[in-house]
Design a protein around this nucleic acid. Structure first.
Lengths: 116, 116
DNA sequence: TTTATGCGCAACGTTTGGTTGCGCATTGGG
DNA sequence: CCCAATGCGCAACCAAACGTTGCGCATAAA
């Protein structure tokens, strides 16, 4: 129900800071560790490590530009991640609906036979 | 774009082990730390701590039954969590689509004016 | 050629997921 | 009634992850 690879993706996007970074990168198109850390309560180092994690799972890609290291979201990979999130969500939803349906069915059949 | 409360929910369901526990609880209806740990590569203690976390954010609820402590998923809360997952996923998707659209627009206007 | 900016590496503290080893309560069989 | 077995919580301990500070090095700008 969950492969090791998918777990890596999950733990990458499970961190709130990394989700914020993805949001910022999506909003501004691209950014460096320094520029991103400017708008966050984090040091450049922390941001840099997070970007390294996102890079390792392929959610962002770095293009060196002079002395800068400009990061950009890999759209295909992020789409994959978004699909996974939605999948888990709808899976839970489906199960909850099924449970609710069964519960109602039992309730109804009890009303027919018993008077509890 | 993300409240502290929501971050707690996220970090709760961000952990792979806790998602597995939720799956198991959904599948079997209810369970104790001991019964759940039996089917996992975890000690009872680890499971117990995870259940405590899930309990604190309200995703599961415990009902003492004799010397046992039976846990059950709080369906409303889980539905809320599922909605959040889906929300983030679709938010990213929407942004990606918008970006792609803009990119195509620029590309097209460049083809008209420049020959680069 | 200096100066300043951007980055990576290393050492360190703190939180979190996991383990083991207790002790305490409840339950069930002599 | 009592004693073994079962289920749980608490505390101590380890390892990995997130964050910090303090370097040093390279590249761009003065």
């Amino acid at each position: 129900m969950s492969t090791p690879v998918d777990d890596e993706l999950w733990s990458a996007i499970g961190d709130p800071t990394r989700r914020t970074l993805i949001d910022l990168l999506l909003a501004s198109g691209a950014g460096t560790a320094t520029s991103l850390s400017a708008g966050l309560p984090l040091t450049r180092q922390a941001v840099s490590k997070h970007l390294a994690v996102l890079d390792r799972v392929g959610l962002v890609r770095a293009e060196p530009a002079g002395r800068e290291r400009r990061y950009r979201v890999d759209e295909a990979q992020l789409a994959r991640a978004a699909a996974q999130l939605a999948a888990v969500g709808t899976s839970w939803d489906a199960r909850l609906r099924r449970i609710k349906h069964i519960a109602e069915t039992i309730e109804r059949s009890r009303d027919h036979t018993e008077g509890e």
